[in-house]
Amino acid sequence: MRGAASALALAGFLAVLALVCVAAMVYGEWFDRRLLSSGALGVLLVLYAAIVVLFRKAGITAEE
């Protein structure tokens, strides 16, 4: 139970980081820094992958 709670807390933190990445993508596109935009998109995708793993470990999702 404690493991599930800490996995969820970490997933929440990663979700906040993902929001920062979205902001970086918008900033990069707005100010013509496209490598920053694409790098932020890459980090965002990796964060989503980590969140999917954490959800499984927390027992929120089950095996497909």
Partner: peptide, 18 residues
């Protein structure tokens, strides 16, 4: 699985940018 699709694509974007 989707988790590795996300991770693989993310890694490619990061490498292409860095």
């Amino acid at each position: 699985p989707a988790v590795w699709v996300l991770f693989g694509l993310g890694l490619l974007f990061i490498l292409a940018s860095v």
